[in-house]
Design a protein around this nucleic acid. Structure first.
Length: 809
RNA sequence: GCGGAUGUGGCGGAACUGGCAGACGCGCCGGACUUAGAAUCCGGUUCUUAGGAGUGCAGGUUCAAGUCCUGUCAUCCGCACCA
């Protein structure tokens, strides 16, 4: 394709000029706008055109805000700790720092091709000791507040990564990173008490301008439920079992109990006759993989031989063990009401346990329940509760149980504390020292950062020990407290540590006294628009909110929510040659399109515009190699139009003026709504209209040419800047003001409207836009002529839209 | 199983609070320019027995439904024995 406008020359020219004279000067007294991209992991594979999508979108918004008179913070950095560099080190012996440095250099070069208005002097890198000093500092503050603690417990262990995983990283029993099935391993690990923040993390979601989907995912992950804990005494012992239930209204219907196999009371209450069977079952459950425990829905279980006593009516209920009860949710023990719970019903049927109905639709007992009745209804077989609405009983029971002294009202969360230590090399060392005399001592703040030492072997171990453990001269240190011999903590932090607060560091990235100064944070935070993929809906976005709330509590920041508005861009997919199916671009699938080549062929402006044009930005889109031709042709067209008309401008005709105002109106509104695909189609549509109007008028006015340049500037900055210069300006287009529209001037004098008979379009008429109903109907009837037959029942006129005549024959 | 999103020409997709369905672009067809091709420009492009039919399917509300209501199907995503 031959080129009409020389994008190569224009783009390199302006890139250079902007580098010397940034279009977004700082330290102004303008209002602020913080527009943030989720920073990338600098992978060796570099970027593909899918990565551009979010970056272009956020840049368009940033440049638009500049034109609207804002001072912008639009930074970029590198989330550079992580496994790929470390695995590469294991294979080749190359130090991860070296690999990371190279990858960053490459990806930075690629990111610069986007020509975004990034503040490169605010770049951060999570592996830079000046950065992770503060990652460690935050950990120390958490430790001091008792929020970071050590605990031994069965943890998700990825045998492939040889590393523990947080719950959030092991959804569906599979390692988030490598897809291996996760096993459980009993390990002593560092935890962060995120559950202390469950309520705030849940409540504060309400006011965020985030996609509902993400809010819902976080809400579900936190998993709040209301209910009661009820104590069941165990027959012939002085022991009791506390169960958690969300259905205290059904307490009279409890006919058995089930304990999780891991429940500590199981061996204590199991009778001699049942001992073998129970031990066998518990052992089998412990070796069952996480995946099958989640997916095997067929109920299994074993009777312990013991009986609990229903505190309400003294009824004896057999106590069973089954792995459908989870040890780490609620109390690890449940009361079972088979009449009103699907799972309990299934269990009761399978093992022949009694079923007592305590709720029914009409207050009468059903003949026989064929399935659990889970709807609300009227209480029956429930003593003093009989006749009450089940919802009322549900609301009343927790308090009643509490008053009677055999339980209490409670709230439960699915959210677990965050397993925070990793047994790998390429991460922030946890800044703690183990002293025989003083116990665990945090490294004093003035000694931070605890830098990562060099190791010989990056190989992780089977035992759950970090490769750092083998470096004796590093491990052996002195206790900051007593000066005696001590050992360093050898675990490192998860990759999420660095990304949980990086948006704060951008505000003041050179500060060596604080993670960021109060003034800088006050100026910039919170983030006004955060753009990134939906894959971090629970992980990064939950952790970052947690960190922010913690920093708020210790007075380090004065806001509780870091990201006011969140936008999730869709992925760019491409058909795989082999199976013809759409896949997200990836090296594995061999469907990657390189932005480097695309820029070479079409230029940055064309690629930027095509990234937006490809489809609704929040949905996945299919890359079409020839689709970019359309925007490239468009840019040539607008270039030619401006070039041909710039030297012979005339006064604006009313038609051209009307097009200009309408164009400003549409582009602005669509841009505000982030419906970027329709912005691009709007540019094309209005340009076509304009070209026709200009042909008729014999020329165009200067203001219209200027408007086009400014409107295009956020989208295709180079060509816009060049055209702006070509029409006679010496100052950057980004120093201009975003144009305003005048609604009165948008209006057309005459409009074409459709004329319908009984809702079917028969013809169209051109009438004055301000015609009243009678004139419009009259004009419509005239246009219809003999087509209109029968008796007219109704006449409808929607100004500017339609005339509909309802006639009966 | 629960929750959410999506469903419109050959393709990607437009259509603001119900008001001319298919904007804009790709592709394709025809024409102009050219020795020729590429590029560019101009015109056409939902289907169709030319009366109509048509926004996954079946109903409903309305003068008027892609848009609202009821039911249903398909695809994708998230959660998934959370008591």
């Amino acid at each position: 394709m031959s080129t009409r406008y020389n994008f190569k020359e224009i783009e390199s020219k302006w890139r250079k000029i902007w580098e010397e004279n940034p279009v977004n000067p700082h330290d102004t007294d303008k209002p602020k706008y913080y527009c943030l991209d989720m920073f990338p992991y600098p992978s060796g594979n570099g970027l593909h055109v899918g990565h551009w999508r979010g970056y272009v979108l956020s840049d368009v918004v940033s440049r638009y805000k500049i034109l609207q008179g804002y001072e912008i913070l639009h930074p970029m950095g590198w989330d550079a700790f992580g496994l790929p560099a470390e695995n590469f080190a294991i294979k080749t012996g190359t130090h991860p720092a070296e690999t990371t440095k190279k990858s960053i250099a490459n990806i930075k070069r690629q990111v610069k091709e986007i020509s975004a208005v990034y503040d490169w002097d605010r770049e951060v890198n999570t592996t830079d000791p000046d950065y992770y000093k503060w990652t460690q500092w935050i950990f120390v503050q958490m430790y001091k507040k008792g929020l970071a603690y050590e605990k031994e417990m069965p943890l998700n262990w990825c045998p492939n990564c040889k590393c523990v995983l947080a719950n959030e990283e092991a959804t569906n029993g599979v390692c988030d990173r490598c897809g291996s099935p996760v096993t459980k391993k009993n390990l002593r690990q560092w935890m962060l008490g995120i559950t202390k923040y469950a309520e705030r993390l849940l409540n504060d979601l309400q006011d965020l301008d985030w996609p509902e989907k993400v809010k819902k995912m976080q809400t579900d992950w936190i998993g709040k439920s209301y209910g009661a804990e009820v104590d069941f005494a165990i027959k012939d012992t002085d022991k009791k079992i506390t169960v958690y239930t969300t259905r205290p209204d059904t307490l009279y219907g409890a006919t058995f109990m089930v304990l999780a196999p891991e429940h500590e009371i199981v061996p204590e209450i199991t009778t001699a006759e049942q001992k073998d069977a129970v031990e066998k079952y518990v052992y089998a459950a412990s070796t069952k993989s996480n995946v099958s425990r989640m997916t095997d829905k067929e109920k299994t279980g074993v009777f312990t031989g013991a009986y609990g006593i229903n505190p309400l009516n003294g009824a004896l209920v057999p106590i069973w063990v089954s792995d459908y009860v989870l040890a780490d949710y609620g109390t690890g023990a449940i009361m079972c009401v088979p009449a009103h719970d699907d799972r309990d019903f299934e269990f009761a049927k399978k093992f022949g346990l009694p079923i007592i109905q305590v709720i029914s639709k009409d207050g009468k007992e059903d003949e026989e329940l064929t399935q659990a009745y889970t709807e609300p209804g009227i209480m029956i077989n429930s003593g003093e509760l009989n006749g009450m609405k089940s919802e009322d009983a549900k609301a009343k029971m927790p308090e009643y149980v509490e008053k009677q002294g055999f339980g209490k009202k409670t709230v439960n969360y699915k959210l677990r504390d965050w397993v925070f230590s990793r047994q790998r090399y390429w991460g922030e060392p946890i800044p703690l020292v183990h002293c025989e005399k003083c116990g665990i001592v945090p490294v004093p703040e003035e000694q931070l950062p605890v830098e990562l030492p060099n190791v010989e072997s990056y190989q992780p171990t089977e035992t759950g020990e970090s490769p750092l453990a083998s470096i004796e001269e590093w491990v052996n240190t002195t206790c900051p407290c007593c000066g005696g011999p001590a050992k360093r903590e050898t675990n490192t932090m998860p990759q999420w540590a660095g990304s949980s607060w990086y948006f704060l560091r951008y505000c003041d990235n050179h500060n060596d006294k604080e993670l960021a100064s109060k003034e800088a944070l006050k100026k910039w935070m919170p983030v006004d628009l955060y753009v990134g993929g939906v894959e971090h809906a629970v992980l990064h976005l939950l952790y970052a909110r947690f960190y922010t709330k913690f920093l708020y509590d210790i007075g380090a920041v004065d806001f509780e929510e870091p990201f006011k508005r969140l936008f999730n861009q869709g992925m760019i997919c491409k058909k795989n040659e082999e199976d013809g199916k759409l896949y997200k671009m990836s090296k594995n699938k061999g469907n990657v399109v390189s932005p480097d080549e695309t820029v070479e062929k079409y230029g940055c402006d064309s690629l930027r515009m095509y990234e937006l044009f490809i489809g609704p930005p929040e949905l996945d889109s299919e890359w079409d190699d020839s689709g970019i031709d359309g925007v490239f042709r468009y840019l040539n067209k607008i270039w030619k139009f401006v070039d041909e008309n710039k030297d012979k401008t005339i006064a604006a005709t009313s038609e051209i003026e009307q097009i200009r105002h309408k164009m400003i109106y549409e582009i602005t509104n669509r841009l505000e709504a982030l419906t970027m695909n329709t912005v691009v189609s709007g540019f094309m549509e209005f340009t076509n209209k304009l070209i026709n109007a200009v042909k008729a008028a014999g020329g165009v006015d200067m203001e219209t040419l200027e408007t086009i340049c400014i409107l295009l500037a956020p989208f295709t900055p180079h060509i816009a800047e060049e055209m702006w210069q070509n029409i006679g300006h010496t100052e950057s287009v980004f120093k201009q003001k975003w144009p305003e529209y005048d609604e009165n001037k948008m209006k057309e004098d005459t409009v074409e409207i459709a004329v319908q008979i009984n809702g079917k379009v028969k013809t169209t008429i051109n009438i004055a836009a301000d015609f009243d109903k009678d004139s419009a109907i009259a004009a419509a009837k005239e246009a219809l002529g003999t087509k209109l037959t029968g008796t007219i029942v109704k006449e409808i006129y929607v100004p500017g839209r339609i005339v509909n005549i309802v006639a009966k024959n």
